[in-house]
């Protein structure tokens, strides 16, 4: 997830306090709003992110690298190496997982640069094969997060005066 929980909660509290509450006239509605803000204040310390999505994302990236590296070597070249180790212990913490996924993403970027470099020695056909593997890895690594994201309700957000 590219947004921090604490940033999201801060924004929610600010929007409710500064933009919504001053406009709410009913005492009952103001009481309900105060209750919501109170819960938001507490949520940040109570929530624990599940590491499952990061684990799944990392496994897809590692498998993608295996296929890309194998293909590059079959073409007689050496792929750009990672800038840090991707190996992970089974008891890895959230921050270790995040750090490994970041290493994996940086390597995807480096492979992209290598592939698009005009000086790249690959033939057009070799390039096409590796390009397809790279695109598939990038795509598949987004799938775990995609499953978590519901569609945005822009209709509700468009406001009452539309």
């Amino acid at each position: 997830m590219n947004q921090s929980l604490s940033g999201l909660l801060d924004g929610m509290r600010r929007a409710l306090r500064e933009d919504v509450l001053p406009e709410v006239r009913s005492a009952h509605a103001r009481g309900q709003m105060a209750g919501v803000i109170d819960i938001l204040n507490k949520l940040e310390r109570m929530v624990v992110w599940s590491p499952d999505v990061l684990r799944e994302e990392l496994a897809i990236i590692v498998e993608g690298f295996r296929a890309i590296d194998e293909q590059v070597r079959l073409c007689g070249h050496e792929p750009p190496p990672p800038d840090a180790d991707l190996k992970l212990s089974s008891a890895a913490s959230q921050s270790e997982l995040e750090s490994r996924v970041a290493v994996g993403k940086r390597r995807l970027v480096r492979i992209t640069d290598w592939l698009f470099d005009p000086a790249n020695p690959l033939s057009a056909e070799q390039r096409k094969t590796i390009d397809a593997l790279l695109r598939a890895t990038i795509r598949d690594a987004m799938a775990p997060e995609r499953r978590l994201v519901p569609r945005a309700d822009y209709s509700g957000m468009a406001g009452a005066d539309d």
Binding site: Q3, G7, A15, M142, A152, M157
Partner: peptide, 27 residues
């Protein structure tokens, strides 16, 4: 939103649409 430079909280909701947008870009 992260830097506190947004006055409109709907921008935070936009951030959640990044992954679907990038998947469509890939397609």
């Amino acid at each position: 939103v992260s830097a506190g430079r947004a006055r409109d909280y709907r921008m935070a909701a936009m951030g959640f649409q990044l992954t679907p947008t990038l998947l469509e870009l890939n397609r």
